[in-house]
């Protein structure tokens, strides 16, 4: 299957960036929450789903259409997220992390059925905002305007915003310290409860934002949470649990592998990423950019 011209590869490369931006938006919240709280949040996929469905509902209200929904839907998800954290997670932070994992799995089941009760089981769809339905040419190749002018910029600015927030602000210092040593941060007089709730809220916001931004690109249905959760797990584990840079790298690899892999071995596209993950995990169990993990001894 050789003989691809350079511009084909370039087009697929840019497409890979779109895929990466989309998956990064959703996965970053999961990674952030794991880094600080140590909770691998199964329900993150539900936040993504709620973000998408809130956009759908908002557009139904006809109060300004899609653009305000990009902010309002994630904020609505933040409310759900904070309620989840305060009611369910907060009482069991002291328990084994695996109990938290199981708890969030229970929440996934509940959130999923609630979506069915509210929005029904049908496929729903959100139209692209006016003016961005078409394509935009770059170097003679056509790209979708929405991905180019909404998805990619939001993805990149999320990376930047998280980087600046974590590395160049006081709060960021505390958060980063908390990823290193939670007890120590508490001992230093930081309000850990508030910190956890805040970080969880940011995580939920990112999940909701991911759902909102991706909503016009696909169908909305109960079960989209399960479809996305395995993908974002892959990305986060590949990049390194709790490492924000790792998540970005994982997303980039995921997007490009998918995009370029199709050109070379189309039959195996759905297995690629798993093969890569196994190779990475065998060589570097902590993921590409993750910190050293504890072993059994």
């Amino acid at each position: 299957m050789a003989g691809f011209t350079a511009d084909v590869l370039l087009v697929q490369f840019i497409n890979g960036l779109f895929i990466a931006a989309g998956i990064y938006l959703v996965a970053s919240g999961l990674s952030l929450v794991f880094g600080v709280l140590g909770v691998l949040n199964f329900a993150h996929g539900s936040f993504y789903m709620y973000g998408a469905f809130f956009v759908f509902t908002w557009i139904g209200f006809e109060l300004g259409g899609f653009w305000p929904a990009l902010l309002i839907a994630p904020l609505a998800v933040v409310i759900v997220g904070v309620a989840t954290e305060v009611v369910f997670l907060r009482p069991i932070y002291k328990a084994d992390p695996l109990y938290q994992l199981l708890l969030t799995y229970g929440l996934v089941l509940m959130f999923g059925d609630v979506v069915k009760l509210i929005w029904g089981a049908d496929n729903q769809s959100v139209a692209r905002p006016a003016g961005l339905e078409g394509t935009f040419p770059i170097f003679g190749a056509l790209f979708p305007s929405y991905q180019l002018f909404v998805l990619l910029p939001i993805g990149i600015s999320t990376i930047l915003a998280l980087y600046l927030l974590l590395n160049h602000t006081q709060i960021g210092n505390v958060v980063r310290a908390a990823t290193q040593d939670r007890e120590m941060v508490g001992a230093l007089g930081v309000n850990v409860r508030l910190l956890y709730t805040g970080v969880f809220a940011v995580g939920a916001f990112l999940g909701g934002l991911g759902g909102a931004v991706l909503a016009p690109m696909g169908a909305l249905y109960p079960g989209m949470d399960f479809d996305v959760i395995i993908e974002i797990f892959l990305v986060v584990v590949l990049g390194g649990l709790g490492s924000m840079a790792g998540t970005a790298l994982g997303a980039l690899i995921y997007g490009e592998l998918k995009s370029l892999g199709i050109l070379f071995v189309p039959d195996l596209e759905s297995v690629f990423i798993y093969v890569l993950m196994v190779i990475v995990l065998l060589a570097r169990p902590q993921g590409l950019l993750g910190k050293r993990v504890e072993t059994s001894r």
Binding site: N15, I19, P144, D227, S259, P266
Partner: peptide, 22 residues
């Protein structure tokens, strides 16, 4: 000219679409 087999529940078809158009 070719086959593509995205998995069930695929979210993002950009790569498939450009591969076909190409």
């Amino acid at each position: 000219m070719g086959d593509l087999w995205p998995k069930l529940g695929e979210r993002d078809f950009s790569a498939h679409i450009t591969a076909i158009l190409n």
